[in-house]
Design a protein around this nucleic acid. Structure first.
Lengths: 206, 206
DNA sequence: AAAAAATATTGAACGTGTTCATTTTTTGAG
DNA sequence: CTCAAAAAATGAACACGTTCAATATTTTTT
């Protein structure tokens, strides 16, 4: 039987991922020790390291799942064909932010972002960066869609503006996770205010 | 003599800071061990921890010095009273980016940012965040200055737009330090492209 | 100037992420 | 079925940031 090894492997992979996410959620990233994760998954510490490059990679796996779902939610917003730049943008960004704390705590986000910046060569870090780019692309797509439908001025560079707006969304999210006192509504309000002038200017028909 | 203790303290503080920045530059943040820093400064490991909360705090002290200088350079640009939004913005951002690698390597920046996100309650992290806000304020100031002089449309919210633009500048800098292959000219070109539509729209006299 | 109090220094010990030589398990050829 | 080679699992050992009880130094009090 040739699949025994592969099957065990997949099983352990799943058990480790499950144990890790459970512990991260329960006691926080820092307090979840590799030994505990390995114990809960029923493997040794060494085996953990056969499956994941390091502790950070483990967290990144969770983050990736989260962002994939956010991307899917974003696609729905673009499909809705709204007819106001500010409104459409707010809807899209709301989806991003609302979903953000479904699986991850602020602490987990902080750690993930921290790792992604601190160790950019890690495989999962690269995946995280790639996901960010897809989110950025989504904002660009929204603008282009609005432009095609005559809601955004023809002379606006949708990609440039989309990247600019998304980078602000992202940076504000970083501020959000850094500040335990800030809530999602406060975050949305700030970003909406920041977007307002650009949204208005983009809408002006020359 | 009452100043003996204070004098020794100041001296050790300086020696530790010097040793740390020297080692960070020479062998990188991760490879510079506390023991090495302490040795070079002529103190024990325990003493290091009496002076600095932890290794990250040490790095943040260096970063703070750097950003203070960038802020000073930025003020000069605002004083020059340029008469084109895109140009003025490019000048300001150039100052930021050009100065950025004077004292710090990309690795040091990554570590600093990583720490500032991962441990936001640390004193130096807070100081770092405060410096960021001052930079953001500086972009807002530039826009307001241009608006007063009739170069930016009267109906534009300079603070909102300034924050948006700065957050993009900041986010792009993060991408820059994450990517060892990217150079400052490439970074500037990207940001200029991203800013172009907003700069153009802001300039339109309605 | 001696003693007491306050403050600073020290380095061995600790905790936890990570590595790696050894052992165990699985595989497929003969 | 046997066995040698490949793959995977293991946990003790290691590295390094951090802590803290013991010691030393400086300041204040008497």
């Amino acid at each position: 039987m040739s699949g025994l090894r592969a099957q065990k492997k997949a099983d352990k992979n799943r058990r480790i991922l499950e144990a890790a996410t459970t512990l991260f959620r329960k006691v926080g990233y820092d307090s979840a020790r590799i030994e505990d994760i390995a114990d809960m998954a029923g493997v040794s510490v060494g085996t953990f390291y056969n499956y994941y490059k390091n502790k950070g990679d483990m967290l990144m796996a969770t983050v990736s799942m989260e962002v994939e779902e956010v991307l899917a939610a974003g696609d729905q917003v673009i499909g809705r064909e709204l007819d106001d730049v500010g409104k459409a943008l707010s809807e899209l960004i709301s989806k991003y932010y609302d979903h953000s704390l479904t699986y991850l705590s602020k602490e987990m986000w902080r750690t993930a972002m921290s790792l992604s910046i601190g160790q950019p060569e890690t495989p999962f870090s690269k995946r995280y960066t790639a996901l960010d780019h897809r989110l950025s692309k989504q904002v660009c797509d929204l603008f282009r869609s609005l432009q095609t439908r005559g809601i955004v001025r023809k002379d606006v560079d949708c990609d440039a503006t989309g990247e600019l707006v998304f980078n602000n969304v992202n940076m504000m999210f970083i501020e959000f996770v850094k500040d335990e006192d800030m809530d999602i509504d406060g975050l949305k309000a700030e970003v909406t205010r920041q977007n307002a002038p650009v949204a208005a200017l983009m809408s002006d028909v020359l």
